[in-house]
Amino acid sequence: MLLSSLSVAIIDYGSGNLRSAAKAFERSAREAGLIAEVQITSDPDQVAAASHIVLPGVGAYGDCIRGLRACDGMVDVLNRAVIEGGRPFLGICVGMQLLATVGREFGDHDGLGWIDGEVVPLAPGDASLKIPHIGWNDMNITNGAGHPVLAGLDTGAHAYFVHSFHFKPSSPDHILAEADYGGAVAAIVGRDNIIGTQFHPEKSQNTGLRLITNFLNWSPPQ
């Protein structure tokens, strides 16, 4: 494979509309002068062959993880490509939450367990704050300072969030950026070749497109 030719697999496991995500990746690649083939796929072989893997997700945690596991062979392929193979991986919204050990939305559900921690209901300290957390919130870049995928994203940058549950990693080292919603909410998590955003980069205008471009340009150390 040529270095300049990327293939992005956006995993389709029946969770929501992936068209905007695909379009956002196409736009980001085009503007960055990258040649990228963007595929929406439920085929584990295509995921295994991709240079970049994206796991989106909307809806309830249990439905999402069940949907993902129902794609025959997908979780195995993900484990091989991402954990063993070091392939760049981006989880979005519930796709980010699936990185956790466990999700506690309508019962307890095992996640992928790639980043130790749990997904719990938002419980803002200020009772006047509404649930879901919907809208544009600004980020505080914590451990993500200097991370290639956060290049050009400074503390104060706004992104579009919509969620009622949030990911609490066991180790603060895995929190790259936070938002404040009556308390700290993980906005970006990551380790090694794995990154996840609670917000929707595909809906966050230029801030989101910048993050996607960074992700496409990312070569995590092996």
């Binding site: 068209r19 905007s20 379009k23 929707h200 966050s204």
Partner: peptide, 11 residues
């Protein structure tokens, strides 16, 4: 809707 979503990356 489809043509809008193709180029406007906002909710």
């Amino acid at each position: 809707v489809a043509r809008t979503a193709d180029e406007c990356f906002m909710p």
